[in-house]
Amino acid sequence: MRESSYKIPDGKLVKVKLQVSVGQIENIKILGDFFLHPEEAIQNIEEALIGAPEDENIIETRISNTLAEMEASFIGATARDIAKTIMIAWEANDL
């Protein structure tokens, strides 16, 4: 499990718990004190990220696409912030 925390400047705190297998996301939890409407979209985002490679743009696009599909929106964070937090976790040591 790799973990990261990212305090968005003037925003919320995002935490990521990540399991990686052969260069792809195997399991991910996105946590934090942000808002997301509707809240259920968090599961869709986490599922959409399974299989994603270590590429910030691809990850951000998968998040943005899921937001669009679900007509969901983050408050206090953006798809880019989440993608960035995931990349920080990816680069962290496996615990």
């Binding site: 939890k29 946590l31 004190d33 809240e39 968090i42």
Partner: peptide, 9 residues
Amino acid sequence: IGTFQGMLD
């Protein structure tokens, strides 16, 4: 806690 937070965290 907020709905997206981890209780044990």
